[in-house]
Structure formats: C-alpha cells, structure tokens
Design a protein around this nucleic acid. Structure first.
Lengths: 126, 126
DNA sequence: TATTGACTTAGAGTAAACTTCAAGGTATAT
DNA sequence: ATATACCTTGAAGTTTACTCTAAGTCAATA
C-alpha cells in the first residue's frame, strides 16, 4: 500500500492531479485507510503507469478514462482494448513523423540563420 | 496578395484562428483592402509557415509571438533567434525521444494484450 | 496534550488556445 | 436593386487539464 505522497513520487504527478484523476474516473475506487486517507495498491500503481504512458503519448483524459473503464470490465474487453491501443499507437507514430518533418524545417532555418548571421557579422566588422 | 480564405487553405488554420493570431501579435500588421478586408503578402505567408512550424513542434503562442517580434526587428536579432531556435530544436528532440520510449511501452502492452486475448478466446471456444 | 503539517472534500479559479456571437459592412450574382 | 454569402470588430463563451481555496480531520512529535 502506498500513500498519495508515494504515488506522487513514482508517477511525477502532484497530489492535486492524482485526486483530480480519481474524480475524472481515470482511477476511481482507490481504497481509504481508517482515517480516510488514500491507499494505492500495486495494481493501482500499475494502472497509474499505464495512465501516464497514455497521457504522455497525447491521449486525452477522457479517452484514458474510457480505456481504464474497459480494463475494469475484464477479459471481455481485451479485443476492444487491443484495437484501441493499436489505433493509438498508429496515431502517435503518424504524429512523430509529422513532428520530424517540422523539425527538419526548423533545422533548415537554424542553418539559414547561422549563415545569415555570419554574413551580418562580417559586414559589421568592416 | 491572398485573401484570408486562401491563407486558410495554405496553412490549414481557420479564419477565426488567423484573426486570433493577429490579435495575439503572432502576425500583426496584416494590410487591408479598401473595404477593410485582410490581404496577406507572400512574406506574410512565409511568416505563417514559420508560425505553423513552431506551433506544430509544440511552441506556445506566446513564445512564437516573441520570436516573430524578434524577426521584425531585423538582423540585429539574428543571433538571439538562432540560439532560441536551436534550444527549441533540442527540446523537440528530447520530447520525441521521450515519446518513443512511451510508445515502446504501448507497443509492449499491445503485444501482451494480443497474447492474453488469444488465450482467452481459446478458453471461450472450449 | 498541543501544535504542526499533511490529508480530506466540494467547489471555485486559472491558463492556453481557440470558438462563437452580435451587429454591421462588402462583394457579387441575378 | 437586392439577396446571399463572406468579411469586419470587440467581446463573451468553451474545452482541457489542471491548480488553488476553505473548512475541517488525522497523525506524529515535542
């Protein structure tokens, strides 16, 4: 069992954010101690890792909530989750390729500016 | 000279967004026709291409506005723009590498789910 | 036992990037 | 000439993902 503080450390999220994710049904049903404090199980920590993975590849919290709901429904939803994840994977790949193309343009600009800068400084020094 | 509609087609942005970017100083000083309609020059279109490039690699509109302001100040800001762009380039590269790591995890999950699904369906058919 | 600090909740507030609205002017096809 | 579609503005509204606040509870330490 982990406290919210430990869950923060492991995920890099703030306690505020963890509570927010709970409210938004990304990871509902986190159990409480006698005093009402959150207790994260190992399974919860695994779910959080998955949540971060999806979030950091650009999935919306709403879509993550939907995915986690399917996960809670068990093996009946395996096919659906598989397909969903595969579609996500392809969209991430496409986004990365697009990003690479834009990055190449940025690199081209850096080179162009560097050349222009050299000329500018040559003129300045005259 | 291009109408706002043509500028939309070339950039993939909506007219709303182009007006918004003007208000936010990403590309201020777009000239108007006698009737008050926007007229984008070739130079404006180049600036828009740069704006999209920076935006699509994750730069905030505020930072883009700052960059475009420097560009309007001319050759004196070449060094600053060069450095700024180089830093941006490196942060994009870092983000892409992070993304790739998360994507590998997603791929691992897809494989895991595929295997689990095969087993599940084998049991179902019995 | 008292105090300090972290936890709880519901709900309000914030920032970024649009997006829509209302009221009116412009261009063009019939 | 007039209807229709598109343009103008300033301002208000929306969405996403937090982030903070207030009022109160709980745990640990001097």
């Amino acid at each position: 069992m982990y406290t919210i503080h430990e869950a923060c450390k492991r995920t890099g999220l703030t306690a505020h954010t963890l509570r927010y994710y709970e409210k938004e049904k990304l990871l509902p049903n986190v159990s409480r101690s006698a005093g009402g404090f959150r207790q994260y199980t190992d399974e919860d920590m695994e779910s959080l890792a998955m949540i971060c993975c999806l979030k950091n590849t650009g999935m919306s919290l709403q879509d993550i909530a939907r995915f986690m709901e399917l996960a809670r429904e068990g093996d009946q939803t395996l096919r659906e989750r598989c397909e969903l994840l595969e579609r996500h994977r392809e969209s991430v790949l496409a986004r990365m390729e697009e990003m690479q193309r834009y990055l190449d343009k940025v690199t081209g600009k850096v080179d162009y500016f560097t050349e222009k800068l050299r000329e500018f400084e040559k003129n300045q020094s005259k």
